[in-house]
Design a protein around this nucleic acid. Structure first.
Length: 462
RNA sequence: ACGCCCAUCGUCUAUCGGCUAGGACACAAGGUUUUCAUCCUUGUAAGCGGGGUUCGAUUCCCCGUGGGCGUGCCA
């Protein structure tokens, strides 16, 4: 398949897209994701990969991976590993062995030479750096192509300039390598970012020079940040790895990203892979930029998270707690399961697990300053906390019912109401203002720990 | 500067000339309990401006405006 088809000697202009041998019969779709491994995979790039993947699956075609590793500096084995890992994490693996662009350099140069021989390219010394090879663009007329998502796109030849395809140091430039590889991989649809629309004219010109039928191009709108500006690394989470680290689920990220620039047409949002594959199509893709809404992703992640089987959640909680320096085994199985029951509905991202559950596993948990200020500082809290501790200590049994009854009784006798007890107690034992029902929490922590924490909190109280 | 592309609630989007403009996130209120989350109900909220075409424009055309991209021996 890597065979060079001899570039035709046709002159620059017409070269009608003559029906090639196989174009008369239904050619099966072949798409590719062609990232350059930089060590991180950008969210915009992976979205392009998702659309390629969906299109391949929808049409029953092939999804291929081409690693554009010609930048030897950055394309380290680790960077490539990261890329492959991300692809696998999201469940998108190449249907054929990945093509490494760096292995195709000779072929690229061979095409360039053939273009020079045919007159569709020429050698020139542009800036005294030595001779490079330049591709000839048409000098007049109008160029156009039909983009599968943007429709007809045209440009006057005057607005296009001849461009370098081989540097004076003998290395092929992106445009050449990209096109030759797409050709050799028999790519039928190039689905890529918006930022490549203008390049398409150059690419088409190289295809023409090769005497080959160009693929169909589909340009996806860009993803922009919350400010509406192009999403960059400066925007915080811009890489797939960031989301992975924060504990987002691959299925949720996939679903969310698929909905940026595409919609099934009905009102479905949460969809299975199969549903997305079935509903996906290029002509349902939008052509305007989409903003990345972290809140919606977070919501969607929560939806996916809560549908996970118990064992998966159990394992994920254990893993996250351990990563946060907490020991899940420090509580009994019974308590552990009760904690899960309480915390799962309150979890949207696994990354927040250690922070939200710390007080169950250690006495050395953090106090939210604002919570302390609001619930512990107020006048009289000290006395109330002490009183609660004494009451709890004198209880015959420390249960859901007994603790609640005791606190209510105390609250009524105090005129400040039960709220003036409940809130400070919560902060005293957990360090925060939110969490499971107070009495469930108390019982799980146990009388000893609760009372100790109440007495400790007195020091912070007003 | 020139060229290309884009333009519906705050955000993601539906609408392929008939719209009382639909859904989701977020937000607000209520059901609820001490908080938070979940769940349910309800509510606020949109067609960038100006011209045309048409019986009728969010939908088609033009001009503005705004934004993005491009104009590299970067990818």
């Amino acid at each position: 398949m890597r065979r060079p088809s001899a570039p035709s000697a046709t002159r620059s202009p017409p070269s009608p897209p003559s029906a090639s041998v196989w174009s008369s019969r239904p050619m099966s779709v072949r798409v590719r994701f062609a990232p350059s491994p930089t060590g991180q995979v950008h969210i915009g790039n992976i979205r392009a990969a998702i659309f390629n993947w969906l299109y391949a699956r929808h049409t029953g075609g092939a999804f291929l991976l081409r690693i554009e590793d010609t930048d030897r500096e950055r394309s380290t084995p680790e960077a490539i590993r990261t890329l492959l890992d991300v692809m696998e994490w999201l469940g998108m693996t190449s249907d054929e062995p990945p093509v490494y662009q760096s292995a195709c350099t000779e072929r690229h140069l061979e095409v360039a030479e053939a273009m020079v021989a045919a007159g569709t390219a020429y050698r020139e010394d542009r800036d005294g750096k030595g001779e490079c090879i330049v591709c000839r663009m048409p000098e007049s007329g109008r160029l156009e192509f039909t983009d599968a998502v943007k429709g007809r796109i045209r440009k006057q030849a005057e607005d296009l300039q001849d461009f370098v395809i081989v540097r004076s140091d003998g290395t092929p430039v992106f445009h050449l390598a990209n096109v030759v590889d797409d050709h050799d991989m028999r790519i039928t649809h190039v689905i890529r970012g918006d930022d490549h629309v203008e390049n398409t004219f150059k690419h088409l010109q190289i295809f023409r020079a090769m005497g080959a039928e160009p693929p169909i191009y589909a340009h996806l709108p860009m993803i922009v940040n919350h400010m509406g500006k192009p999403y960059s690394k400066r925007d915080g989470a811009a890489f797939v790895g960031d989301f992975q680290a924060q504990g987002f689920l691959p299925e949720a990220l996939f679903n969310f990203l698929a909905l940026l620039g595409w919609a099934p047409g009905d009102d479905r949002e949460i969809m299975t892979r199969g549903e997305m594959v079935e509903a996906f199509d290029l002509d349902r893709c939008k052509s305007s930029a989409a903003r990345f809404d972290l809140k919606k992703l977070t919501w969607m992640n929560g939806e996916y998270l809560r549908r996970l089987p118990r064992e998966t959640l159990d394992a994920a909680f254990r893993e996250r707690l351990a990563a946060g320096g907490l020991d899940p085994a420090s509580v009994t199985d019974e308590v552990w399961n009760a904690i899960l029951d309480l915390m799962i509905p309150r979890t949207k991202i696994f990354g927040e697990v250690p922070g939200n559950c710390a007080y169950f596993f250690t006495d050395d948990f953090a106090f939210d300053p604002r919570a302390v200020e609001k619930r512990l500082r107020p006048e009289g809290t000290r006395e109330r906390l002490l009183k609660v501790a004494e009451t709890f200590e004198s209880l015959p049994a420390f249960t859901l019912e007994s603790t609640e009854a005791a606190l209510r009784a105390l609250g009524e006798s105090m005129a400040t109401g039960i709220g003036s007890l409940v809130h400070p107690v919560r902060v005293a034992v957990s360090g925060m203002t939110e969490g499971p029902g107070l009495f469930e929490m108390l019982v799980l922590l146990g009388r000893e720990r609760v009372c100790a924490r109440l007495r400790q909190a007195v020091r912070m109280a007003g």
